[in-house]
Design a protein around this nucleic acid. Structure first.
Lengths: 199, 199
DNA sequence: GTCTATATAGAGATAGAC
DNA sequence: GTCTATCTCTATATAGAC
């Protein structure tokens, strides 16, 4: 009897989808929360284990190292709908929607704000993941802005590549300001940023 | 005989300016470096002590706790020339200059990028410092943009307060991107940001 | 003012029982 | 699949010698 049914959690350890699949999902949720509150370095594997009623070795059985656990959390977020295929208008609209949706998930914002700064260190376990993430995002937004420029919808003199980096920067920077002061309106900020560069 | 001469290092422990003043300056420099490389949580007091040829207890004599050391490092940077008194044009020009100057001090950028994210946690020792810093910076830039708006030098429809927050966000966000990829031009990005909101 | 030595707590990770 | 018990390392901080 296998109680997990048709559970479909990604398995990075290659152990298949045994009974542990549900436990793995539990662990990933707890890890997301914990990393979000204290960052990667500030969180202990024991604390994550305690959050889901496990002991430290039990967790380690599923994710051999702390770094493996972090990468599993990050890879899980990669499943979010990609922006790559969309038209320029849709890409920018989706970006604003995402910011609005995230505004109700403080933990997620904390995780990415903390981690993206931590992970600038070359030896950080999530370094490659963030480098790839930023490169992809900037490339996608550069293409969107370039598309706007072709039809004259980008303000003259605005460089699509620089504007794309600035847009990503505004999203990141407003997250920190919002974490320090929840009165800050991230959606308004990002929308204003896009409006400033469009014609 | 007091070898420190007219040394003027801030003394947060209330021990006066005895021989230790030179040692304190040495410690602060090493702490800045170390915090910059590994963040506050990722740095041990022992490592900072080792960097300046001291033992851990010797350092603790000067700065009773790790948090005291961090705050002393931050307060030391408060001595940088303030923006408050300047005219709008000068404020914005100085901002771009500062970004350019910082581009040669990777350690400083790492410190602030890492810490500003870490310090969003309410119980972080530098939380109050960063909350104050952002409030001051946004207030100063809001005033500068409002001044531009009065003389019609701000693009119509741009809210000075929102634009100020976006400018601060761009500076912060570009730092992370620059840390991940030194090809990123922070000066060009910040200059473009200001140009996008001005008339 | 700086040291050695130590207390205490917590980290990540492993071995082996059940 | 999860546990107890333990290893090893490192952390912050203190006591007291010099």
């Amino acid at each position: 009897m296998r109680p997990e049914g048709d559970d479909a959690v990604a398995d990075t350890t290659g152990r298949g989808t045994g009974r542990g699949a549900a436990t793995r999902a539990l662990i990933l949720a707890a890890a997301l929360e914990a990393f979000a509150e204290s960052g990667y370095r500030g969180t202990s594997v024991r604390e994550i284990a305690a959050r889901c009623g496990l002991t430290h070795p039990a967790l380690i059985y599923h994710f051999p190292t702390k770094a493996d656990l972090l990468l599993a959390v990050l890879e899980r977020r990669d499943e979010d709908g990609p922006l790559e295929g969309l038209a320029a208008d849709r890409v920018l609209a989706r970006l604003v929607e995402t910011v609005g949706a995230n505004q109700s998930r403080r933990g997620l914002i904390e995780l990415f704000a903390t981690l993206s700064a931590e992970a600038t260190a070359a030896d950080h376990p999530a370094h490659a993941w963030f480098a790839r993430r930023y490169a992809n995002l900037v490339a996608t937004l550069t293409r969107a802005y370039a598309e706007l420029a072709e039809t004259g919808e980008l303000r003259p003199g605005v460089d699509p590549g620089v504007a794309a980096r600035r847009l990503v920067a505004v999203m990141d920077g407003l997250q920190v300001q919002w974490l320090l002061d929840p009165e800050v309106d991230m959606v308004a900020g990002v929308a204003a940023q896009i409006a400033a560069d469009r014609g």
